[in-house]
């Protein structure tokens, strides 16, 4: 059984004359431990698809099964739990809470999981060490560079050890050197056995993935497995 399965997914914004068909009949299945690159031009519907996969948004039609479970039947509370425990989301624009410190930002998912404070501290510290930010724990996001913020966002996505890591253009806002560091981080996570879906419109980034899914105007037009090319650059 695939980890996640999309079956005839459509997403329409608005109604009637102004209706905008963002996703059209999307079928997609992703197995555990896959590293998938989702490629497409800006506005092709990549983020919309990611949001549906992340149980943040609901499709207009079609079914989305996560580990065989039909997500559309789940309650709002259950969806919150899934987002909390099964999915790690790395947003396109970091999405850190500016009032909270780095450590507290990473602790947020653990807080909603209901873990006690000392446990949260320990787990957040560990994962921040993993992304090389152990020294910046007490800082607030506005004091950090773009690459550092991105790493905080990744640490936060990883802290609950999710089944599925969704990264929406994780290198989009970064210079190539920092981007490279971030990508290496993802390579490492993949090697550890995480399932990763990464949005990008940078083909060089996509080259590192085993599988490339190309989307245009809301349709999947290509889905190819690739030889693991260069690997480490």
């Amino acid at each position: 059984m695939a980890l996640l399965e999309l079956d005839g997914i459509n997403k329409v914004y608005g109604e009637g004359e102004v209706a905008l068909h963002v996703l059209r009949d999307v079928d997609l299945a992703i197995e555990e431990r896959e590293l998938v690159a989702l490629i497409g031009a800006s506005g092709s519907g990549k983020s919309t698809l990611m949001n549906i996969l992340g149980c943040l948004d609901r499709p207009s039609s079609g079914t989305y099964r996560l580990r065989g479970e039909d997500v559309s039947r789940l309650s709002d509370d259950r969806l919150s739990e899934i987002r909390n425990r099964e999915i790690g989301f790395v947003f396109q624009s970091f999405m850190l809470v500016p009032q909270l410190t780095v450590l507290e930002n990473v602790e947020v998912p653990l807080f909603y999981r209901g873990l006690p404070r000392p446990k949260r501290h320990a787990m957040a510290r560990e994962v921040l060490g993993l992304v090389g930010l152990a020294a910046r724990i007490g800082h607030k996001p506005p004091q950090l560079s773009g690459g550092e913020r991105q790493r905080v966002a990744i640490a936060r996505a990883l802290v609950n050890d999710p089944l599925l890591l969704l990264a929406d253009e994780p290198t989009g806002n970064l210079d190539s050197r920092t981007g490279e560091e971030i990508l290496r981080l993802f390579d490492g996570l993949h090697a550890e056995g995480h399932t990763i879906l990464m949005v990008t419109h940078d083909t060089r980034v996509a080259d590192r993935a085993q599988r490339r899914v190309t989307i245009r105007d809301g349709r999947i037009i290509e889905d190819t497995a690739v030889e693991p090319a260069g690997g480490k650059a």
Partner: peptide, 11 residues
């Protein structure tokens, strides 16, 4: 609020 909801906060 969006961030908290995305990270697992219930209503």
């Amino acid at each position: 609020i969006g961030i908290r909801r995305a990270l697992g906060a219930k209503k």
